[in-house]
Design a protein around this nucleic acid. Structure first.
Lengths: 189, 189
DNA sequence: GGAAAACCTTGCCCTATGGCAACGTTTTGG
DNA sequence: CCAAAACGTTGCCATAGGGCAAGGTTTTCC
């Protein structure tokens, strides 16, 4: 198994070496070009992705054709459209790489089989969902209760790497503002 | 066990009658006055609540003193500040009843003990987290990508009972707008 | 059951952000 | 390596929503 994923399991679970080895064949390594789309709106999501290098984002396109980015996964994070994965319904969001990336992909059938039958994967899934809960709780309060300038400052303080690696267009779509406004806010800092 | 909670378990898990009976002593029935606060910002959340009747909300107060409502739980839903429950950190949000309510409360120690040792509760917890994931995914895209009038129309279409049971002040704080704006939007419908 | 408090509405004006246009800069891909 | 496309910045104006004030209405609770 790739060392990054093994480290992830050891960090979250008390899995032993044999069990870990038995999980290896479920994950396929995949190289992804920059800006490649892994899932389109309307398609049913079939895989869960663990990011080895690079980063991928989840975003949707609203009625006016504007992109809204909900989540950006960097190294050592799982990312997928869990809503589509869980419900089996067509996704309302896209999955796209933002850099040349390497990921480990596991099919949804294998993933949910292991969630049911392998306690370590159950624990990992629980951890993913709990982390998502905590992240999105804060995000909703941010979007509801904080103005753009403060959201920008918060992002600069908490995830400075975002500004080195991603375009302003993507950052703006994550903050919920237009690239125009982001450009103006940055020059006002 | 209260029939509403039993029905909830039967709906989500394949629990048997004896196991269900063994869970009963973990839940204490509690009657709550309208507007009673169950958890304040800064306190560590100690319980998970299952709503039998009435409703409770999760909200925070931002820097300007304005309330933002993140979630409203009606009958047959679990609600708590999972972020505080999971991390053990002080809560950034309040829990408050919006009507005279009856809930079943389980302590966090008992709850997480059962999540680890009772598969049916593990499944219920997984279901709660998955549902929260699906709900908040849509909510983030709504807050980011849709204007207030459309958010109002969506809420009217999807949760009309909200408008019969809750004050405009609470509805506005859920939509992320002021009561002034809500009043104006409603008269424009 | 009545005073006080909370709530709802609406007029007026203000502010943050959006959208277009124009133009320079960077990135992409053959 | 170069042309085309995408991106970033900024001036100008438009618009959604916020905030105050004032008045009517409903709710609370002693």
């Amino acid at each position: 198994m790739h060392t990054a994923l093994a480290a992830y399991f050891y960090d979250i679970t008390d899995i032993n070496e044999e069990t870990l080895a038995s999980l290896t064949p479920y994950f396929r390594e995949k190289t992804i070009r920059k800006n490649e789309v892994l899932l389109r709106e309307g398609e049913v999501c079939q895989s869960n992705y663990f990011v080895i290098s690079g980063c991928i984002r989840l975003y949707s396109v609203n009625q006016e054709g504007l992109e809204n980015t909900r989540y950006i996964a960097f190294e050592r994070k799982f990312a997928t459209s869990f809503t589509s994965l869980i419900t089996g319904q067509p996704s309302i969001e896209y999955i796209q790489s933002l850099e040349k990336s390497t990921v480990l992909a596991i099919s949804k059938e294998d993933f949910f089989y292991l969630v049911e039958h392998e306690p370590a994967v159950n624990k990992v899934y629980r951890n993913i969902l709990e982390s998502a809960y905590i992240t999105t709780q804060k995000r909703i309060y941010d979007l509801q209760g904080t103005d753009s300038l403060n959201r920008l400052k918060l992002l600069l303080a908490q995830q400075p790497q975002v500004f080195k690696r991603l375009s302003n267009k993507v950052i703006a779509s994550y903050l919920g503002i237009t690239p125009y406004t982001l450009s103006r806010l940055k020059s006002s800092l």
